[in-house]
Amino acid sequence: MYKNIRKDDASRAVIVHAVLLSYTLLALYPVFLIVINAFKTRKGIFSDPMGLPGPKTFSLEGFTKVLAKSDFEVYFFNSISVTVITIGIVLLLAAMAAWAISEYEFPGNTVLALYLAIGIMVPIRLGSVSILGLIVDLGLVNTLTALVLVYVAQGLPLAIFILTEFMHQIPKDLKEAARCDGVGEFTIFFAIILPLIRPAVATVAVFTMIPIWNDLWFPLILAPGDGKQTITLGVQQFIGQYVTDWNAVLASLTLAIIPILILYLIFSRQLIRGLTSGAVK
């Protein structure tokens, strides 16, 4: 049947794939390069940087050093705790607020919605001086709680905005049917609304997670101390200290990359669906 395929279509497909393939290579190769060299001896890193680790060049000395000289497992634990707890709180509080804004007519409804939206455009970092003061006053310096509080405030505006838009689409009949059956407002929220917003949860979780996991600023100013570093700060400090030790540097970068890479490949479908769902317009 190939007589029915237009010739220019076929050649166009080749060009399109060439373009996409080259860009994919540009996006992935640098990361790949770091990861393969982390598994080489120092000699291997310099003599054949672009080759895969072979029997002669394979070595885990970088990883041994990193694990001996730093607390990577602690950094991971810190990052994961902060991120997971923050996402949980943001989702719950944002869903509650979004529900109130989208469902109830009360004085100042629109004003409050706008007030809560300010934080979408204004970066929370600009208030760092006072945030640090506040955290000092609360006695929370060098605690993960400080990070969670700030990140929750940072994540709420966009989360509320997305969820409000989403809740507007929940059919009115559902809630009214429940009210007619005499179900209380809290029960309506927890038993009917929360399960319904599940599709939007992925989107919100993504938008909340990326900036938190990757943040250097707040860990640096609020919790830079021993044992409280997040993975981003931990890597930054470690590399700053061992900058000339290529094995250790490459290994520490690899340790920071691999878990994210695995998580990304597992959740990329949800994540990309969240990004492309058109929730953010």
Partner: peptide, 19 residues
């Protein structure tokens, strides 16, 4: 849509692969 099989003629010309 592309044609899987057969011919389409407009004014006597086969236009299967014409845009």
């Amino acid at each position: 849509e592309d044609i899987t099989g057969g011919d389409l003629m407009i004014d006597g010309d086969i236009v299967n692969t014409k845009s």
